[in-house]
Amino acid sequence: MSNAATETRSVVVEREFPFAPEKLWRALTQPHLIEEWLMKNDFKPAVGHQFSLRGDWGRVLDCEVLAIEPNKTLSYTWNHVHDDAAYNLKSVVTFTLTPTSAGTHLRVEQAGFRSDQPQAFGGAKFGWQKFLENLGQLLARPD
């Protein structure tokens, strides 16, 4: 039997990039590049590393790297603390890179939205689309 209070939803955004997985991986794991498409950060690609993300719309604190498989998978906690506790979010973001004949398929999943968090869910859906647009622009620039 499922309990509506504990059931969670995920935001999934997928996109094809005409670049090798290695190039995407750099953009997902190097702090100066993460800052260009996502937010200011003190990220390190090491399991257990704790970091925070700081954007003009807010901060994501107490993030922790959960899994790293170079050029394939990156996963970390994304805990957004808000003045209004109803907006607090404990979630996990997972990036999955799959090589394709034309480049790389990137799947971003943010899991952990409670059913009583429609604003956070909608915000993440919109936010990840925007972040991936930024990522595409960053990748398209000459190295």
Rank of each mutant, 00 (worst) to 15 (best):
W128T: 07
L132V: 07
R9P: 01
K125M: 11
A85D: 14
A67V: 12
L97T: 08
G136M: 02
K125C: 03
P18M: 10
A111W: 03
M39S: 08
I34W: 04
V13E: 05
L139M: 08
P31K: 15
H32D: 15
F126E: 10
P45V: 04
N79E: 05
T77F: 06
E36K: 15
S2L: 10
H32Y: 09
T73Q: 09
A46K: 14
T73L: 10
R54N: 12
D56C: 00
V12N: 07
K40E: 15
L38N: 13
N71E: 15
L28A: 11
Q129L: 10
W37G: 07
D56E: 03
P18E: 15
F19V: 15
L139H: 14
A67H: 13
T100W: 01
T98P: 04
P21G: 08
G58P: 04
Q110G: 04
F19R: 11
F19N: 13
N3M: 01
L66C: 04
N71F: 11
L33M: 15
R15Y: 00
T94N: 06
G122L: 04
L106M: 05
H105Y: 11
L89E: 14
D116P: 08
A124Y: 09
F95W: 10
L138E: 05
E109P: 00
C63D: 11
A20F: 09
W57E: 02
T73P: 01
W78N: 09
A4F: 04
R15M: 00
H105P: 01
D62S: 11
K72D: 10
V93P: 02
W37S: 09
T8E: 07
W25G: 09
D84E: 14
A67T: 15
G58E: 02
Q30V: 14
K130Q: 05
G136R: 14
E35C: 09
V47C: 04
I34P: 08
R107T: 10
Y87D: 12
K125V: 04
Q137F: 07
R107S: 09
I34K: 07
T94Y: 08
H32E: 15
A4T: 10
W25L: 08
D56F: 00
A5V: 07
A67C: 05
Q30I: 13
S52C: 14
D56N: 01
V65I: 03
D42F: 01
T77Y: 08
W128C: 01
L138F: 01
A46D: 13
T98H: 12
L138W: 04
K125W: 06
L74W: 13
R59A: 09
A85M: 12
G58V: 01
K125I: 02
L38M: 13
Q137H: 12
E64A: 03
A140F: 00
I68T: 13
S91D: 02
K130S: 07
D42P: 03
E64R: 13
E64Y: 12
G55W: 02
G55V: 00
Q50I: 08
K90Y: 13
A4V: 09
T98Y: 00
S115F: 03
A140G: 10
P70K: 11
A85R: 15
A124N: 08
S52R: 14
T96N: 10
G127Y: 02
D143F: 03
A67M: 09
V65Y: 06
R59K: 14
N3I: 06
F131S: 09
R59D: 15
G122H: 06
S52I: 07
T6H: 12
S10V: 11
